[in-house]
Amino acid sequence: KNAAKIVNEALNQGITLFVSDNKLKYKTNRDSIPSELLEEWKQHKQELIDFLTQLES
């Protein structure tokens, strides 16, 4: 999976991924984040940080 797909899947579940101080963060109104999503974010962390940083610049 690529970073764009992961970010879109998160958005579809009401979760916004973003970068703050070079760290991957998220915002959501959900009570909890599915563990498989958290695991996927960890596996692709640097790719996600790079992707989101490019989007914001």
Rank of each mutant, 00 (worst) to 15 (best):
Y26D: 00
R30G: 08
D50G: 06
T16S: 06
S57Q: 13
L52R: 00
D21A: 07
T16G: 03
E47P: 05
S35L: 14
K5L: 14
T16M: 12
F18R: 03
L17Y: 01
H44P: 00
E36M: 08
T28L: 03
L17T: 00
K27L: 08
E39S: 08
Q46Y: 08
P34C: 04
T28I: 03
V19P: 02
K25P: 00
L24R: 00
I15Q: 01
K1T: 10
L24H: 00
S20G: 06
N2C: 14
R30Y: 05
L55P: 09
E39T: 08
I33P: 05
Y26P: 01
T16I: 15
G14R: 04
S32L: 07
K25I: 07
N29Q: 11
I49H: 03
Q46A: 10
W41D: 00
Q54L: 12
S20P: 01
A4N: 06
I49Y: 05
Y26F: 11
S35Q: 14
K27E: 06
L55K: 10
S35C: 13
S57M: 12
S35V: 14
H44Y: 15
L48C: 01
E56K: 11
L55R: 13
K45A: 14
I33S: 02
S35G: 10
Q46I: 07
G14M: 04
S20K: 13
N2L: 13
K1E: 08
T28M: 04
L37S: 04
D21M: 07
Q54E: 11
K25E: 08
W41A: 02
L24G: 00
E9M: 06
L17P: 01
N12A: 15
A4H: 07
N22F: 07
T28E: 02
N29W: 10
N12C: 13
T16K: 08
H44M: 08
A4R: 09
E47V: 08
N2E: 10
E39R: 10
P34Q: 04
I49C: 04
K1W: 11
S32T: 13
W41Y: 04
Q43I: 13
G14C: 07
V19Y: 05
D21P: 01
E9R: 10
P34M: 03
K45F: 12
D21E: 11
N12W: 08
Y26W: 15
W41G: 01
T28F: 04
Q46M: 08
Q13G: 04
I15K: 01
L48R: 00
A4S: 09
N8W: 15
L55I: 10
R30N: 08
E40V: 15
N12E: 15
D21L: 05
Q46T: 08
S57A: 14
F51H: 06
Q54D: 09
N8F: 13
S32V: 09
A3W: 05
I15G: 01
K5S: 13
N12Q: 15
A10Y: 02
N8G: 10
V19K: 02
T28C: 06
K5E: 15
Q13D: 04
L48I: 15
N22Q: 08
Q54H: 09
S20M: 11
R30I: 06
K1A: 11
Q54R: 14
K42L: 14
L55W: 11
L37K: 03
K42T: 11
Q13H: 13
S35A: 14
L52S: 00
D21Q: 09
H44R: 06
K27D: 05
L38A: 05
F51K: 01
K1S: 11
K5Q: 15
E56H: 13
N12Y: 09
V7S: 02
K5T: 15
Q54I: 08
E47A: 12
Q13C: 09
R30T: 05
E56I: 12
V19M: 05
T53G: 07
F18L: 06
V7N: 03
K1R: 10
A10L: 03
L38M: 12
L17E: 01
T53K: 12
K1L: 12
D50E: 14
S32A: 09
L48M: 03
K5F: 12
W41V: 05
N12F: 09
L37F: 07
S35R: 12
L52K: 00
K42N: 13
E39A: 11
S35I: 14
S57Y: 06
D21W: 05
E9W: 07
T53N: 11
E47G: 05
Y26L: 03
Q54C: 11
A4F: 10
K5N: 09
A10F: 03
E56R: 10
E36S: 10
V7Y: 15
L52Q: 00
K25C: 15
V7M: 05
N29P: 06
N8D: 12
D50Q: 11
R30L: 10
D31S: 11
L38T: 05
K27Y: 10
S35K: 12
T53H: 07
P34H: 04
K25L: 15
Q13R: 09
K45T: 14
E40L: 15
D31H: 11
S20L: 12
A10S: 04
T28R: 03
S32K: 10
I15T: 02
S35M: 14
L52H: 00
L48N: 00
D50V: 11
E40I: 14
N8M: 15
H44T: 03
A3I: 11
A4G: 07
Q43P: 02
A3M: 11
E40W: 05
N29L: 12
T53C: 08
L17V: 02
E9K: 07
D50L: 13
A10W: 02
W41R: 00
I49L: 07
E56Q: 15
L48G: 00
L52E: 00
T16E: 12
P34R: 04
K25A: 11
I49W: 04
K25Y: 15
E39D: 09
F18W: 07
K45L: 15
T28P: 07
S32P: 09
F18C: 06
V19C: 05
A3P: 11
A4E: 14
W41F: 08
E39G: 06
E56L: 12
K42M: 14
I49T: 04
N29A: 11
T53F: 06
N29I: 08
I33Q: 02
L11D: 04
L37V: 05
D50T: 11
E9T: 07
